[in-house]
Design a protein around this nucleic acid. Structure first.
Lengths: 157, 157
DNA sequence: GACTGATAGTCAGCCTGACTGACGATCAGC
DNA sequence: GCTGATCGTCAGTCAGGCTGACTATCAGTC
């Protein structure tokens, strides 16, 4: 949609940059994963669910950083596609253990390969060292302690 | 909501990183701009509208990278707050010339200051050179020609 | 064994953001 | 004055994600 919005006044704003880069990435991701019938978020769910020990929906939601109610629809979609299976935990029958089906594992493998290739192409406009640093900076920002909200430490000078 | 989703399997995925960093930024932005009664997008609209020559809604929408129908509600909100004014262009009466009111200009100045400070704090966890490079990389990715979609050159090996 | 509070999954409802499609008003060309 | 295109507007829709309520289950207590 947006095309190439002029960069005159906004190109140095973090919000603008993140929004549009994220948008471009989403497009590229959708395109790359379309052949496998999943989108980027669903693939991420598969990744999480492929952990060594099986996870409940709530645990998976926690790792994905999504709400538990959002997880319901996410698992629903994957189950309809035959990529995962719910079963009641015998230890705690409140919990749904969600596991990949063989089809799901296949999808995960191929999807991850496609995603990796997509990301490589996406970062191609950057010098390799810049791409590397970008990812590491993003990791830092994603995990950094929430920058003290309105708690500008005036006494810390 | 999300808290600190475990980084075990997702922390190296671009989609995950962009989503969550963008989310954190949005939070910080909302917090920083709340005192001025605008959100980040509205402030961006003010920035665009403060251009030398007055813009129509469509031109402003183009520069912001949003749809013209989205622009309507955006200008509506700003107009209700008394930050901008619509008037029919005398050159082309199909067009709405949208201009900042004095209040809007004041809001823009203060808001931009707050935003700059917020961004500085947001990037504080990074080394200055990394922050710099991050912004430049984002600019590159935001403007780079759309990575040839589905045109994986199989014969180019 | 029954009662109470917390937890997991589900669902309905709502909100936000953004789009498509249709419409009226206007412009430009003929 | 007609015709096609453009601008702003609105209604409708859709996706993402949330809150709140509900059920089933667990854990601890009496």
């Amino acid at each position: 949609m947006t095309g190439d919005a002029s960069f005159e006044a906004l190109g140095f704003r973090l919000g603008y940059l993140f929004k549009h880069v994220h948008l471009r990435l989403a497009e590229a991701s959708a395109l790359a994963l379309a052949p496998f019938g999943v989108d980027g978020r669903e693939l991420a769910v598969l990744v999480v669910l492929a952990a060594k020990d099986p996870l409940s929906q709530l645990e998976a939601a926690g790792r994905l950083g999504v709400d538990r109610t959002t997880m319901v629809a996410l698992v629903d979609a994957l189950e309809v596609k035959g990529l995962v299976e719910r079963r009641r935990s015998s230890q705690d029958r409140r919990k749904n253990i969600v596991q990949l089906t063989p089809t799901g594992q296949d999808c995960l493998r191929k999807g991850e390969q496609a995603r990796a290739e997509m990301e490589r192409q996406f970062l191609a406009p950057l010098a390799p060292s810049d791409a590397d640093r970008l990812v590491r900076s993003l990791q830092t920002l994603a995990t950094a302690p929430a920058t003290s909200p309105a708690a500008v430490p005036e006494d810390a000078g």
